[in-house]
């Protein structure tokens, strides 16, 4: 099993959830690393969890992205390490320019917490290698700033290089009345990967649909995380 660590910033609030979720899949609890610590070298996969790091003051993820530990994560990426950013973690990844584009305020101008269905895209290398093209997953989103934006040139490059990891798609039976795209993200983008496929940012929360008690039944989030862990496994 790969060695996995979860970074906790002041205001992170999904750290325990993703630790519990990953442990239920791998049988091993990921390490929790406080942001003031900087030793992350021995881990294969670094997870930036959801929450409101530093209160999301200024912009979501902006202050966390400038914390010293992000230099370590930058090095980890240069060494070919894997990084997963969920929700606020995705915001931190764009703010630190480990991923292109920006996450803007939801087009509805409100926080949105609801189930969405996302469609995955396969890539031969990196974190998307265990996904089938079009494989779909249901899970909740919960955010103020999930409206993904990239300029035309960046967007073309993302499409060209297969970096669009997940897109929102219609499809929850009873909820057809509700828009499939919860935040106005350009091209329905719910997640993207870096060019080498090893840094993934996504707005939906797989850790919120992986227990049989969860409203979505618990299968989809578990499968999604399994795919990611399988891709990292040396």
């Amino acid at each position: 099993m790969p060695s996995i660590a979860v970074i906790r910033f002041p205001g992170s609030n999904c750290d325990r959830d993703i630790i519990t979720g990953v442990a239920s899949i791998t049988g091993t609890k990921p390490s929790a690393i406080w942001y003031k610590d900087t030793d992350i070298a021995r881990h294969d996969l670094i997870i930036l969890p959801g929450g409101f790091s530093f209160g999301d003051y200024l912009r979501g993820g902006a202050i966390a992205a400038r914390a010293p530990i992000m230099d370590e994560i930058q090095d980890h990426v240069w060494r070919g390490g894997y990084v997963l950013g969920i929700c606020n973690g995705f915001q931190i990844l764009t703010e630190s320019e480990l991923l292109p584009g920006a996450l803007m305020r939801n087009v509805g101008l409100k926080y949105v917490c609801r189930d969405v269905v996302i469609k995955a895209h396969h890539a031969d290398d990196g974190l998307l290698s265990a996904f089938k093209d079009g494989q779909s997953f249901r899970m909740p989103v919960a955010h103020n700033e999930g409206n993904y934006y990239a300029d035309e040139e960046t967007l073309a490059r993302l499409q060209d290089k297969g970096q669009i990891a997940f897109t929102y798609t219609a499809g929850i039976g009873g909820d057809k009345h509700i828009d499939a795209n919860p935040n106005g993200a350009i091209e329905d983008i719910a997640g993207i990967v870096s060019e080498n496929g090893r840094v993934l940012g996504m707005m939906p929360h797989p850790e919120r649909n992986l227990d049989p008690i969860h409203g979505g039944g618990g299968q989809d989030g578990r499968q999604l995380l399994k795919n990611l862990i399988e891709a990292v496994a040396p």
Partner: peptide, 9 residues
């Protein structure tokens, strides 16, 4: 440039 503005948007 360093913090206050996200120059992408």
């Amino acid at each position: 440039e360093v913090l206050l503005v996200n120059t992408i948007i």
